[in-house]
Every structure is written in structure tokens, then in C-alpha cells.
Write a protein that binds this DNA or RNA. Structure first.
Lengths: 290, 290
DNA sequence: AATAACTGATAACTTTGAGTTATTAAAAAA
DNA sequence: TTTTTTAATAACTCAAAGTTATCAGTTATT
């Protein structure tokens, strides 16, 4: 025979009322049943918990001590089950998020603010990672959510557009073309181009190429980089021009001019990606927000 | 249906082995029985604790959390039951002890040393109290053990001699009688006597009287006091002579001379007293020591 | 591709023991 | 003295824990 929570529950009732009849009544069981369970409990522990006379019931020293502990145990158990439910429902948990540097100023801050307001129990763990690494880590369950610019993702991953952006031309301040004189990218066909590396984000690379091809030329690429800031610095130094997502204008203190390219079909899209069968309960809530 | 420790125990086994068959084997129950209990537990908590496929079992986030808590709970429960047993067996507990000032230098220090060595879990609570107060407090369960000098105690209290002492004459240094010239108390029949108050310890008072009566005189009592030190000071000041338990010679820094009274039947006895039906488990051990 | 060796779930059953009612025995109160 | 209130005891019922036998998938092995 083993100790069960039932015993502790019954013990607590008797310890409180110091009266088997009343305790039994409150527990919605019969008095003999209660008597037997308490006696059994004493046999299991090999300890006398109550002094019983025909007329009165009092706690022994051991029973007195146990009473306090039982209160603690039930209290702890209550908290634990509540916590377990919260975790299961995703109200509490950890969410590992990966993102492209170029997303850091758009969707992510907004998401984090809403998340911490609506689900203060969810902790986030952010990491700046390339498209490729994010996909890899999502597949290996090292990441719960990624923010990428990719045309498509492997089977088993789901994705959703979270931001759509136009492209902007990035030019040094000294450049002759400005907002008024700019008409189309064909005007830049002789300029050297500075672009994001294709292995960092091939979809971006391909789109830039198609923008130029639509104007009947293939750009001369002088430099490639994975960092937006590096690209801006190179433009500033007069080493070429660049085409980047328009939203990158925000968030950097720049000495270059941005000219939004209007009237073209190409857009850059930021996708949220996650493993379709990811079991992290917190993920559900983030996807609701997005 | 309620959660029981059985559920937690089974959960722990499955969480450890991540295999129902092996967990069931270790629990000495059948696999279907285990499966059903775990399922029932999930129904009670309304939370999925394991991801089961036909081939593998893994913990959910909630299950992972619960595992740690369950370990804690069982650990706590183990400590608690051990503690309860210790308390019940008297290895741990509190003992409220009362004593006469005149016992402070004899039995008490020895007892405390042995107690703390053999039962380090027993805490003691000492209080210097008169015979009368000790008896009263023992009867009211305000005290577990007393040390008194009384001829007898009320029904319901038990007693036991713990120390037997001779009486000694206390004289100022200037007094003509000394160890060599002293023969019997009759030599002092003209001296004023300083004694312990009869209401502090009537048996003591009666014995002193009987010592004198055996020598055919009734002492002239000049002063009474409840404090040994006061008596010594009065003797020192030449206000009279005293007869006290011999052991009081130790423990005070005195400017009076002690002369042990030999060849008389009177002795002073220190008794341990306790309520016969006292339930304090620690008391048992102290009585063993005495 | 067929087979064997695992896994956990399901179904029907046995058996244990928690809880029941009825009663007793003792103590306190009326 | 009678009534009321207490916990314990005895004999019973029944819910459910645990059983055996089996199924239905998945993963190695041949």
C-alpha cells in the first residue's frame, strides 16, 4: 500500500476540523470511510498522527508538523498544475526567433511589442541569421520562427507574407540623378552596381536582375555584400549604386540618397517561416498575431 | 476523478524511460495499465504530456516542466515523511524544561550535554522556576520536564530522584567553628538562621527544621530568601548561619566557609518531574538519559 | 519484398480496495 | 437516567486499477 494524495487531503480535513464526522461531511464521504483512510495513512507512515479518545481528536507533534507540510504540498501542486496548463496553452514559454538583418527595423520590433503585451509569459530569443541558416535551423528544431526573403521553402515548413516593400535606388549625394530627374533604372545602365550577395538571399538578387532586364540591360556588378550598412558605405564612397528594399531607409544614419523606384512590378517580400509540425505551444499565439 | 500520487509516479517513470513498456516493467505493472493511467492523468490535467507515435514517446513542453516539478514533489515528500517519523520517534522536537536555581549547577548542565550529543535534533527551552510554578506549568502542559525538590507531587505527575545531596553548614569566615571543631548542629542552637523560604521549597525548609529538632532545639530564623546567593551574602555579613545543599558550594565565588554535616539521616533530593501522560516524543529520550 | 521485432492502443476481464450502511461502545450533556 | 455525540467495527457494494490477449502500426533484418 502506498501513500496517495487522497490520504493527504483527508488528513488535512481532519487536522483542520479535529472531528472525523465533520471532516467526512466536508469531504462528501462517510465517517467510517474517513476513519479507515486515516488509520491506513498512519500505518503507511508508521506514525501516529492523531490522539483519539472516544470524545476528542487532537494532533500529535508529528501530525502538527505534517499539517504544515501538507498545506505546502497542495499549494505547490496547485501552482504546478496551473503552470502546466499555461505552458500547454502557450501562455508561457520560450520562442526562438531568427531574422534577416534587413527585417530588424520592420516587422520584428512591432511583433515583440505586441507579444510582450498580450503574452507576457512568452520569452523570446532573437538571432540574426541568413535565409539559409534559418531554414536549416527550423528543420532541425533549433528555431521556432524565422523571417526570410525566399521564393519558397522546403517541404515541412510553412510560410506567410508579413511585409511587402518596394525597391529604392541608393545613390551618393553627389550623383546627378535625384527625385525629380529619375524616371527609370535604364538611366543607370552604365553605373557599377553594389548588391546583396546572391547566397545571402538569391530571391533579392534575382529581382534586382529582373528589374534591370526589364529595362533592357544587365547591370555590371562591382561589389557584393551581406550587410546593408556595408553597401551604403560603398555607395557613399562613390564605388557604385545600389537597389535595396525601401524600408532600409529607416533605422540607419545615412549619407546617401534614397529614390523609390515606382511603376515596376517587382516587390520584395518578407516571410515568416516555421516548421509546420512545430509543437511549441507559444508559436500558435505568435502566428495569430502575424 | 482526482490526481493521485500514483499518476505522478507513473508519469515520472514514463518521462524517464520515454518508453511505456520499460516504464511499466519497472513499475511492476502491465503496459496497458500504465497507458491508461497516463491518459487519465492527461484528462485530469486537460494537458497533453507526451507526444506518442507508434514508435516513440517524447515529452511536450508542459510535460518537460512537470517532470522537474514532480521530482521536486517526491523529494519533498520523502523528506517530509522522514521528518514526520523523526518527530514521532522523538529524535526531533522541542523540550520545555523548568528547574530550580539550586539545580543549575548539578544535573542540568550534564543533561544538556548528553542530550545535544545523543539527540542533536532536540531543542531545549530552559526556564528557572520555583517548585510550585513548575508543578503548575507541568499540569497545564506548559512544561515537559521540571526539576524540583518536593516531597510529593499531585496525581498525574511522575517523579524520579536524579540527585541526592548532603547538607552543609554555611558560616562566615570569622566564625569560631571550622571543619575540625564542628561536631553537630547543636553547637549552633544560639545562632540566628538564614534559610530558603518555605514557600519556595517547603521540603527543604522542613528538613532543616528536622535536622535541628534531632539535636533538640528549634532554630531562630532571622531571614528567609529564595536565592542562594542572597543567603550567602547575608551569612558573609555575619547576620546568621545557614544550612544548604552541599552542592551549592560549587558554582559561586564565595567568601563563606562550607562545612558538610555528616552522620545525619537527612538528605536533600532533586527530582525530575513530568506529566505522566505527556505525549511529547522527545520526553521519552530524556527520561532514558536520566 | 517479405519477415521479424519492436512500439503503444484497444477490448474484455478480474480483483482490489475505497466507500457504503448499519451498528456498537464509550463519553459527555441534559 | 436518558439523550446526544463521538470514533470504531463489521459486512457489504461497486468503481476502477490492473490483468491478459490482441491489434495495428513502424522500423530493422533478411
Amino acid at each position: 500500500m502506498n501513500l496517495e494524495l487522497r490520504h493527504l487531503e483527508y488528513f488535512r480535513a481532519v487536522a483542520e476540523h479535529l472531528n472525523f464526522r465533520k471532516a467526512a461531511e466536508r469531504l462528501f464521504i462517510s465517517q467510517p470511510g474517513l476513519s479507515r483512510q486515516i488509520r491506513q495513512m498512519e500505518e503507511i507512515l508508521e506514525v501516529e498522527l492523531f490522539y483519539r479518545t472516544k470524545r476528542s481528536v487532537t494532533l500529535t507533534a508529528a501530525g502538527e508538523f505534517l499539517k504544515g507540510e501538507v498545506d505546502f504540498i497542495f499549494n505547490h501542486l496547485e501552482l504546478t498544475t496551473q503552470q502546466v496548463k499555461n505552458i500547454a496553452s502557450g501562455k508561457i514559454g520560450e520562442l526562438r526567433i531568427g531574422f534577416l538583418g534587413s527585417a530588424a527595423h520592420q516587422v520584428i520590433p512591432d511583433l515583440l511589442v505586441r507579444l510582450s503585451r498580450e503574452f507576457p509569459g512568452i520569452q523570446t530569443n532573437l538571432e540574426e541569421l541568413s535565409n539559409h541558416l534559418q531554414v536549416e535551423m527550423l528543420e532541425k528544431d533549433k528555431l521556432d520562427l524565422g523571417f526570410v526573403r525566399l521564393a519558397r521553402v522546403p517541404d515541412g515548413l510553412s510560410m506567410k507574407v508579413v511585409h511587402r516593400d518596394t525597391f529604392s535606388l541608393v545613390l551618393p549625394h553627389s550623383h546627378p540623378i535625384d527625385d525629380d530627374t529619375f524616371e527609370h533604372v535604364g538611366q543607370l545602365q552604365e553605373e557599377p552596381f553594389i548588391l546583396f550577395s546572391s547566397d545571402y538571399s538569391s530571391i533579392y538578387f534575382d529581382k534586382i536582375m529582373s528589374i534591370c532586364e526589364d529595362r533592357g540591360f544587365t547591370p555590371k556588378i562591382s561589389h557584393k555584400s551581406v550587410h546593408a550598412l556595408t553597401i551604403f558605405k560603398l555607395v557613399e564612397a562613390g564605388l557604385g549604386v545600389a537597389i535595396v528594399p525601401s524600408s532600409l531607409k529607416e533605422g540607419y544614419d545615412l549619407k546617401v540618397k534614397f529614390i523609390e523606384i515606382k511603376g515596376i512590378p517587382q516587390h520584395t517580400e518578407l516571410f515568416a517561416v516555421w516548421k509546420t509540425e512545430n509543437r511549441n505551444p507559444a508559436l500558435k499565439h505568435v502566428l495569430e498575431i502575424l
